[in-house]
Design a protein around this nucleic acid. Structure first.
Lengths: 161, 161
DNA sequence: TATTGTTATACTCTATAACTATA
DNA sequence: TATAGTTATAGAGTATAACAATA
């Protein structure tokens, strides 16, 4: 009972061809980013951080006095989406949210001691995660990739720089 | 009244420093991918396609007889998440879902004529979108980036190739 | 009027467990 | 028992409109 593909209207596909997609930078970026993201989630889990809470915490720790609107800009996310992130970091006492005296609409963000320490510990784990995923990639290639990613982002704002 | 950092609890941040993040490939990939994704969404909107429905449609069109499980593997998504995508494409009569005679658990996927045409039209728009975003990037760099993205994906499965 | 932060909401993508029908 | 597809569900990221308080 050897089934020949001949007469059957549907063929068994042995190897899936992605010829129309494989040369798209966006397609490969998405697939690679999924891999990176999955590993980063595992990396940050012990710290009870996610990509966005980690990024926000580090930026706050490194930029004391930062306002939420500045942070949202820096993180390239919408203001409403930042609120829950800040809420979470504040609830865990990793940051403080202080009213700015000179502009009482705004909040100034500061990492607490606990937040500073957590950011440092998580950053070490993230560095190991990068090395794990990219250790085989030589430094030249890595720099080329980062430059390319930066270029894509800049194209967004119309600048060729 | 020059405010020295000393006594003031909160400082105004003029320029946000991302020193701890900017050299992370994952960080730059995320930001660049957000830009690409936003533009791709706009690109596919006229065709009423999204990233995943576009990818699925092209892969089905180029691999007639494909099974859902093969497609899920090729797209690197979980089977349950593919179902709604296939449902949508079938509802729009862009693909057919036929029972495989030799294995009645499986479905063989085939693009309809309409699906084939939509995939072709959308692919042209996607090519323009890539050119718009990456036109300024020279071919060498583009190939290096794609190779790097592929390498990251392969690292996932433990193979160094 | 414009801006800061907020609430509410919706859509998309991702991930897991549990089910069915077939093998 | 294992596999193909399905259902249900939950978590996370992204985006927009509308609002209060303040500038």
């Amino acid at each position: 009972m050897t089934p020949t593909a001949k007469s059957t209207p549907v063929l068994r596909v042995d190897k899936v061809s992605d010829a129309r997609l494989r040369d798209l930078v966006g397609y490969q970026m998405k697939r690679a980013f999924n891999v990176v993201q999955a590993d980063l989630i595992r990396t940050l889990k012990p710290f009870e951080l996610r990509m966005l809470t980690y990024t926000a915490l580090v930026l706050i720790a490194d930029n004391p006095g930062l306002r939420q609107s500045q942070l949202a800009d820096a993180m390239d996310i919408e203001r409403p989406n930042l609120v829950v992130i800040i809420d979470e970091l504040e609830r865990r006492a990793l940051i403080n949210r202080d009213r700015v005296a000179s502009d009482r609409r705004a909040f100034a963000l500061m990492a607490t001691l606990a937040g500073t320490h957590l950011a440092a510990a998580a950053s070490k784990a993230v560095a190991r995660h990068e090395h794990r995923l990219l250790g085989a990639m030589d430094q030249d290639t890595r720099e080329t990739v980062i430059a390319a990613m930066t270029q894509i982002q800049q194209g967004q704002h119309g600048g060729t720089k």
